[in-house]
Every structure is written in structure tokens, then in C-alpha cells.
Design a protein around this nucleic acid. Structure first.
Length: 577
RNA sequence: GCCAGCGUAGCUCAGCGGUAGAGCAGCGGUUUCGUAAACCGCCGGUCAUCGGUUCGAGUCCGAUCGCUGGCUCCA
């Protein structure tokens, strides 16, 4: 979202970063400065410091910043030649590195008081223009984002034009934390992760499992509609197969180590594709039977580095909603269009109306020929153009075996996670000689697509939980109806109502505890159950129910028939209420 | 993997060198109640694990496991 204020806000945040650097330098004169840009929600600055910062340091730095701001120091721009710049930043080796790489002989510097920084600008006129800021967190960050470089200390902060905006932002962050899938996973009893079992390994509780099952059933149905077949492949393959596929060499860091059985090494699968290829190769394939679209909810295991694990969103064992399409090169574009439409349909069905589409192009290390890469990249672009799908290009971010299109979903805190992905593969057809017999009677290599339309069940569930804040639409809600008898004498009637609704295929919970109705409603509400049915003397004598929605709305008295219609229409339309 | 912070009852958290605490949940009672928390009582912890310092360690130090925020990575 572009705002007329965005530009000035960015400038102000960048200036705040400079003020922060000045404050840090006054507290640590020996500090070495990295870079300090404005970012989407604020700003940061990287420092090399004699000791680690603590949260208390942030308060002291903030205080120092307030003094600089109160002093109303003007920002002054100067242009100097590189020689002069090198003198100014003689004790700042990171800055010297930056100066060396600047293209022009003259470089911009900005001063405020005694502080000077290498900077293109622009900046606000004076430090006094920075009013509503807050330092947020400390983090480690490699110099230039390179693992082989020293790690600097990064301070994140944010700044806004008005105190209201700052308060609103901090409030939003707090609200977002309430939608965090890790928190809701516990509160709604959806899943758990256990130290005893291992990091990044998910245990789906009954309520989470129901949601997953519903997603999977829907997923299968939609695949059959679109001409896919289902396949199942094993969880472990011989190590030799992974050597043949190239994974052993390229992805060894992600593979769980081999286990030995009867003198053979086996590896738990990190991907499903080799299995599908083996099925393909069980007979000679004619061009007439292509495309073949084979889907599998395939559970894979990848040894992710410990620091990257994150709830359900980044795990070590997960189920991909995988499929491989084997087609003739000329069919590639239509197939890609088909997958894109499918993915778009899935996103829309699950309520994701905002997502990013990224086209990743050829990386430094790649398989296949440049011509093939260019052609496939073009095909992907044409497919997106045909659907008028706006996308951005992520240069060099393709996987080694081919270009890809990624669709990214955002979590509650605005972090983007890769969901659906469509990848063209030049490597495996070659390595495994995956061919078909063409019209000309000759063997040709197939064009192969790897794709998911959700991503993985785990990550998709994470995004789904956060997207709905745990209040799943009726068709997905683990419990659709909570029945609340007012007193124990209404239990029989409550059970009768429950039985009738269960017979209609609804997921019902009768709260039969000898508790007050208010408590039962509160808990059903906190569990985000879409419908609460209250039954007491009135309902019992008139054979009706009283309906309350999870948004607090009291619908009043209804017959069971009327209620059934409301629920069915919500389920069919996949609505919230 | 790297930097930093953190691991105390099922959950949320207090205690930070001197005999382990609260609320909620759970269990046992009492209450039978009209749209977001009735009341009383009880149970519950080798303070993540292992090792060290100390007369004495949730409390200090080290290692390991795990979590959190970043960085890097993400077929």
C-alpha cells in the first residue's frame, strides 16, 4: 500500500537510524558502524561493539537519542571525493569497504553535530523532527548478510509521525501475537511439539487432525476433478536412488543420515519425486497418454538447521501436497496455467486474497542448458501473463534444476512463507531418462513439473490458523456446534438435539458439566466454536433451540430445521458463519 | 549453524545465594443457574538435563537439549 506519507516516513526513519548510531557511538566510542536503513516497519542499524547489548542498553540508547532530538541538531549534507571520505571514516573499516564499492568519485555524507555518516540521504532537516520512536529489539546479523563475515549487533526500532500511529502500530503487533499459530495451537488444542520426540516434529491433536483431514479430503476431490491421479510411495528409499537423483550430492546437509538394513543403506525421503519417476518408468509411455498428473500427500523429512525452526511453518517432518506432471514440452504452458489456476482457486477457497507471486530465475549453479532455462522461464511468464497474474522476479533464486513460481502467504506478523510452488525440472528427466515415445516413434525427454497448491499441510495450517485467528470457517471448524444445557435437567433434550445434528454430519459437543451457562458460553466462545446452542425450559417445551454466534450475536429462537439450513448453507459456501 | 534472550506445577507467570509461590486448569463437594468466569476444599514441582563453584544453588559458572527474536539457509 503506497501512501503519500510513506516517503517522508521513510526519510524520518532513516534519520532516526542515524540518531541511534550517534547515540550508540557516544556510549561506545570504539563502535564500528555497519549499515542503517529504513525498513518496512521501522529501521535498524548494525554495530560492531566491544560487548553484547542487553535490553537495558536499549533504554539507555533511547534516552541518549531523546537528548540528541531535544538538542534540535540540523542534518547537513556534504559531497566529498573518495579520498576525503576515506580520511573521515579512517577508523570505520566497514564504511571504508562501502566507499571502495561506490561507483562515483564523489560520495555523500551527512552530519548531525559531531556525528558523520556515509549516506546518500535524504534526511529530515533536524533531529527535532523525529518524535515518536521506540527501539524494539536486538539481533545478530552478518555483515553484508554473509555467513562468512563477522556477526554484528543489529538494533531494530520504529518511528512514526504521530504518537497515535506509533501506539496503533504497537497495538497491531500485540494483536498479531494473539493470532500466532503457536499460541492458538495450544489454546485451541490443535497440535504440539515435544522436546522428547524432537524439534520440528509435529503431533497433530484430534482437533487439528480434523481440520487437516477436511483439507485433505477437499484437496483430493479437487485433484480428481482436474484430471490428477493419486499415488502412494514409500517413506524410505535406498541411498543409491538419492545418489542417482543428485540429492545426495546437492542436498546432503538436509538428508537424515542413512540407516542400514541387510547390508543396504536407506534414507528417509526428503522429496517424493523419485518414487513417482519409478512408477512412470514401469512401462514405455506414449505421447498419447501425456500429460500424466500424479499427486501424493507425501510426508518428507529434511534436517533443517536448528535456528530456523518455527512452529508449524518451518519443520523437519512435513507432508507436501505434492504432484508431478509429466508432459510433452509443448504442453508445458497449458499445464502451468492449469496449476496456477488451481493454486489460485485453493487460495481463494481458504480465504487468502492477498499473496505475492514470485518468479525465480536461473541461479549460478544449474543443471540443463541456458536455452532450456530461457525457454522454460518464458513459458512460466507467458502462463502468468495469460492469467493476468501480477508477479515479481526474484533473480537467481531458482533451484538448480529449473525455474519456479512461488506463491507466498503472509503470517500474522507479516512474515512471508512460501506456500504453493510450481517448478520446472530439467535435471531428473535427464538423470533418470524419463522419456516418452513421440509421434515420430523416437524417445523424447519429458517435461517435468513439481508442484504444490497448498505448500505443505503443516505450513498451510499455520497460515490458515493465523489468517482466521483460530476462528475457522464453519466447514473447517473442529467443533461446529457447542450445545449448552442451562441446567442438568435439560441434558436429555440437549443430547437429543445433538443426536439429530450429528445425524446430519455436524461436529457437535455437548457441554454436560454441572457448570453455569455463562461459563459454558465463555469457553465455547474462547474455543471459537461457530455456533452455540442454548437449551433450557423454553426450548425444551417448544422443541426449539436458542442460537448464539461466536461474534457474540444472539440470533434467538429457531427450530432445528431452520438451524440446519443456516449451517448447511454456511458449510456449502465455506463461510465464516 | 551464528548472535542474543529465555526454560520454575498441565497452562500463564512471581521468586534471582539460605527450608519452592499465585491464578487458571484438574480432582472432591455445594450450587441447577437464561447468553463471556458461582462458592468451598484438595491434589499438584528431583525449579529442562548433566557437571562445577559454595557450608548452602531455580538463584552463580560451564556443557547439552529445547524455545523465542533476528541473521544465514530454505529442493
Amino acid at each position: 500500500m503506497s501512501h503519500p506519507d510513506d516517503k517522508s516516513q521513510q526519510i524520518m526513519r532513516h534519520s532516526a537510524a542515524h540518531v541511534m548510531a550517534q547515540a550508540v557511538l557516544s556510549l561506545f566510542p570504539e563502535a564500528k558502524l555497519g549499515i542503517g536503513p529504513a525498513i518496512e516497519d521501522g529501521f535498524y542499524y548494525d554495530f560492531e561493539l566491544p560487548r553484547s547489548l542487553t535490553p537495558d542498553d536499549l533504554l539507555i540508547i533511547e534516552q541518549q537519542m531523546r537528548q540528541i532530538i531535544a538538542a534540535d541538531v540540523p542534518f547537513i549534507r556534504e559531497e566529498v571525493d573518495k579520498q576525503k571520505a576515506r580520511q573521515i571514516f579512517i577508523s570505520q573499516h566497514y564504511k571504508l569497504e562501502l566507499i571502495d564499492e561506490l561507483p562515483d568519485e564523489r560520495v555523500g555524507i551527512y552530519r548531525q553535530g559531531s556525528f558523520v555518516d556515509l549516506c546518500r540521504g535524504p534526511h529530515v532537516g533536524s533531529t527535532a523532527e523525529i518524535k515518536n520512536f521506540k527501539l524494539l529489539s536486538i539481533a545478530g546479523a552478518y555483515w553484508r548478510g554473509d555467513e562468512s563475515q563477522p556477526m554484528l549487533q543489529r538494533i531494530y526500532g520504529t518511528a512514526f509521525q504521530t504518537s497515535e500511529e506509533l501506539a496503533a502500530y504497537l497495538g497491531r503487533v500485540e494483536e498479531a501475537a494473539k493470532r500466532d499459530h503457536r499460541r492458538l495451537g495450544k489454546e485451541l488444542d490443535l497440535f504440539s511439539i515435544h522436546q522428547e520426540a524432537g524439534a520440528g516434529l509435529i503431533h497433530w491433536h484430534p482437533k487439528g487432525a480434523v481440520v487437516r483431514c477436511l483439507i485433505e479430503d477437499f484437496w483430493k476431490e479437487e485433484h480428481f476433478k482436474r484430471g490428477y491421479d493419486l499415488v502412494y510411495t514409500p517413506h524410505i528409499f535406498k541411498a543409491d536412488l538419492w545418489k542417482a537423483s543428485g540429492h545426495w550430492e546437492m542436498y546432503r546437509d538436509y538428508l537424515y543420515p542413512p540407516m542400514e538394513m541387510e547390508g543396504q543403506e536407506y534414507i528417509i525421503k526428503p522429496m517424493n519425486c523419485p518414487g513417482h519417476i519409478l512408477i512412470y518408468k514401469t512401462k514405455l509411455r506414449s505421447y498419447r497418454e501425456l500429460p500424466l498428473r500424479w499427486a501424493e500427500l507425501g510426508t518428507v523429512y529434511r534436517y533443517e538447521r536448528s535456528g530456523v525452526l518455527h512452529g508449524l511453518a518451518r519443520v523437519r517432518g512435513f507432508t507436501q501436497d505434492d504432484a508431478h506432471i509429466f508432459c510433452r514440452p509443448g504442453q508445458l504452458e497449458d499445464e502451468v496455467v492449469g496449476v496456477l489456476e488451481f493454486a489460485r482457486f485453493m487460495m481463494h477457497t481458504f480465504g487468502f486474497d492477498e499473496y505475492e507471486v514470485l518468479l525465480s530465475t536461473r541461479p549460478g549453479k544449474y543443471a540443463g542448458t541456458i536455452e532450456n532455462w530461457d525457454k522454460a522461464t518464458e513459458t512460466l511468464q507467458e502462463a502468468m501473463d495469460r492469467l493476468q497474474l501480477p508477479y515479481e522476479i526474484d533473480p537467481g533464486a531458482g533451484v538448480f534444476y529449473g525455474p519456479k513460481i512461488d506463491i507466498k502467504l503472509k503470517d500474522a506478523l507479516g512474515r512471508a512463507w512460501q506456500g504453493p510452488t510450481i517448478q520446472v525440472d530439467f535435471n531428473l528427466p535427464q538423470r533418470f531418462q524419463v522419456t516418452y515415445v513421440g509421434e515420430d516413434g523416437q524417445e523424447h525427454l519429458v517435461a517435468m513439473i513439481h508442484r504444490t497448491v497448498l505448500g505443505s499441510m503443516e505450513r498451510f495450517f499455520a497460515c490458515l490458523i493465523e489468517h482466521y485467528g483460530g476462528a475457522f470457517p464453519v466447514w473447517l471448524a473442529p467443533i461446529q456446534v457447542a450445545i449448552v444445557p442451562i441446567a442438568d435437567r435439560h441434558l436429555d433434550y440437549a443430547q437429543k438435539v445433538a443426536a439429530e445434528l450429528r445425524a446430519q454430519g455436524l461436529r457437535i459437543q455437548v457441554d454436560s458439566r454441572s457448570e453455569r451457562m455463562n461459563l459454558k458460553i465463555r469457553e465455547a466462545q474462547l474455543q471459537k466454536i461457530p455456533y452455540m446452542i442454548v437449551v433450557g425450559d423454553r426450548e425444551q417445551t417448544t422443541s426449539t433451540i436458542s442460537l448464539r454466534l461466536r461474534n457474540g450475536e444472539d440470533i434467538g429462537t429457531l427450530s432445528l430445521g431452520q438451524f440446519g439450513m443456516i449451517v448447511r448453507s454456511a458449510i456449502e459456501a465455506k463461510r465464516q458463519n
